[in-house]
């Protein structure tokens, strides 16, 4: 055993790391027969953004299908009750002067819908409990604002995002949700148009 072998080996490791972070250093390392490993791993955040996994989630949004008034939410308030930090507030469902529920596209709808960004803990429980797949998790994470209200207290207009957006940011999950909704629609369809056994 040569004295100082470990010291020299350690120093060579750091020197190799130093060189492999430069393009010319990588050329140099290859020229002397060393295969450089990955090199710089820093993602320079404001300039370059990291590619997140599909399951990456930050803050919920409300899904609408064709137009912003065609939202899936029926104002059942399950998410409001389940939300652990209680950051959701739902007003509604919308009613007319006689107290009968108003419907758009055959569904009741909330008059107001607030989620407080500064309280939400990104737990996704609201998404799990929603029977209508009306609320989904977004992956936009630059949510900082200069004041808490109203900028961080998002209202219904700010929360609404289209199903196309959902399909774009989370293709796999959106496909599952769409399949589930299609199945539900197919199951809901027969009673409205009953088919007689004789007709087949």
């Amino acid at each position: 055993m040569i004295v100082g072998q470990g010291v020299l080996r350690g120093m060579l490791v750091t020197l190799k790391t130093f060189f492999q972070t430069y393009p010319w250093g990588r050329v140099l390392l290859r020229a002397i027969g060393i295969t450089p490993s990955e090199g710089l791993v820093t993602i320079e955040y404001p300039d370059v953004k990291q590619q997140h996994a599909e399951r990456f989630r930050v803050f919920p949004f409300l899904v609408y299908d064709k137009s912003p008034d065609d939202l899936r939410c029926v104002s059942c308030k399950i998410c409001e009750q389940e939300c652990p930090p209680a950051c959701i507030h739902i007003g509604g469902p919308a009613k007319d002067a006689q107290g009968r529920p108003l419907k758009v596209y055959g569904r009741t709808y909330p008059t107001e819908f607030f989620i407080d960004t500064s309280i939400c803990m990104s737990c996704r429980i609201c998404v799990d409990v929603c029977p209508f797949d009306a609320i989904e998790m977004d992956n936009a994470y630059e949510l900082s604002a200069e004041d808490r209200k109203p900028a961080m207290l998002l209202d219904k207009a700010a929360l609404l995002k289209s199903n196309e957006y959902f399909q774009r940011i989370k293709p796999e999950e959106a496909a599952q949700v769409d399949a589930r909704l299609a199945a539900k629609a197919a199951k809901a369809a027969p009673p409205q148009a009953p088919s007689t056994p004789s007709s087949t």
Binding site: T14, T17, F18, T21, L40, T42, E44
Partner: peptide, 10 residues
């Protein structure tokens, strides 16, 4: 700079 490069940083 040098320390950062030795730790794979900028």
């Amino acid at each position: 700079k040098i320390i950062a490069r030795m730790q794979n940083r900028f």
